[in-house]
Simulated assay, not measured.
Amino acid sequence: MASPKAVPQQARARQTYERILSATAEVLVQVGPERLTTNLVCEQAGLTPPALYRYFANKYALLEALGERLTQAQRDVLVEWSSVSNLSQNPQDLLKSFEGLFHKTMQVTLRFSAGVPIMRAMRSMPELQSVVMQSHQQIAAVIAALFVQAYPQTTLQTAQFLARTAMQIGYSMMEMLFDEPQLSTEQAAAAVARMVFALAEPEIRANAVGLQSLNALSN
């Protein structure tokens, strides 16, 4: 798979680049990732194939560019939420915070142009799975580092596993809701929050016990 080339800096070239991606999103909604072709995108954008190939080698490069933009929008939500203060809330507030994070990530994905088809493409096409993997690894590293600050007795390796697993649970639940929209988003958010909290709770408790022991020793 050929990755998209660097985003052009000149105004006219940048307009063409954005026009291509906008057309790709429109075609993707109409026909889905499997039937997407560069010819259909050119027809939608009113461009010749050489104009498209100047920036994108094939349809996978088009989808990769859209996938990177979507995952960046999702990462922005997670980064904004990620803080030591959020992670160290009391259990009830932490559960509510997890629910809110899930809802906000869902909303950002649904508002993103062709967000759901892009997620489906990244899930189903091996050529695009590295986009998802890299995005999840990056944000998991941020959350893990903050988790260790909030709960110092947790190892970074354990925190990375917890963060990565929590993200997988959240994204899998979103995909289920996209495939079965009749299901309750509220119930899904609550279920994700409970599962993620269940993952983190042993470390939270262990840190609390450890802190109590340290305080007892110091007294």
Rank of each mutant, 00 (worst) to 15 (best):
H103W: 07
F102P: 03
Q134V: 14
P117G: 04
Q89A: 15
L47I: 11
P49S: 04
Y17E: 15
V116N: 02
L146V: 01
R75W: 07
T16C: 10
L70V: 12
E64D: 15
A166D: 07
R14H: 13
N207Y: 07
A114I: 10
L28D: 01
P50V: 09
C42I: 10
A206N: 14
E80D: 12
G46V: 06
D179K: 06
A45Q: 11
I143M: 08
P49C: 03
T38Q: 11
M122D: 01
V132Y: 09
M133A: 11
L162N: 04
L110F: 13
A65Q: 05
R12H: 06
Q72F: 08
A2G: 13
T24R: 05
A45K: 10
P33W: 07
L199V: 10
E99I: 05
L110Q: 15
A188Y: 00
S218I: 07
L128P: 03
N215M: 11
F197H: 08
A45I: 15
E43Y: 08
M133I: 07
A206K: 14
Q15F: 10
K104I: 00
S184Y: 02
F161C: 11
S135M: 05
L28A: 05
L63T: 11
A190I: 03
T154S: 12
A208Q: 13
A150N: 08
E26S: 09
I20L: 12
Q168K: 06
M195L: 12
L110I: 15
V27P: 04
L199F: 06
M125F: 11
F147P: 01
Q89F: 01
G32W: 06
A57G: 13
V7F: 13
Q134C: 06
R75F: 04
N215V: 04
A190Y: 01
P33Y: 00
A51G: 13
L211E: 13
A45N: 07
R12W: 10
F197G: 06
P152Y: 09
E34C: 03
L183P: 03
A141F: 00
W81F: 11
Q129I: 00
A73G: 05
E99A: 02
I169Y: 07
V7E: 11
Y17P: 15
P126I: 08
A208R: 13
A65V: 01
V132D: 07
S113H: 15
K96I: 04
E68V: 14
A73V: 08
F112I: 11
S135Q: 08
F98Q: 10
T165Y: 03
A163G: 10
G67H: 02
R111G: 10
N39W: 02
E64K: 10
S135V: 09
Q92I: 12
R54L: 05
A25I: 00
Q153G: 06
E34W: 02
P50A: 11
A13I: 14
S22Q: 10
Q107G: 05
A159Y: 02
R194A: 07
A61C: 05
L47K: 12
T105H: 03
P152R: 12
V142W: 00
S124P: 02
E34Y: 01
Q44R: 14
H103D: 14
A141M: 12
E99R: 09
S83P: 10
N86D: 03
F112S: 14
P8N: 13
P4W: 01
Q74K: 04
A141Q: 08
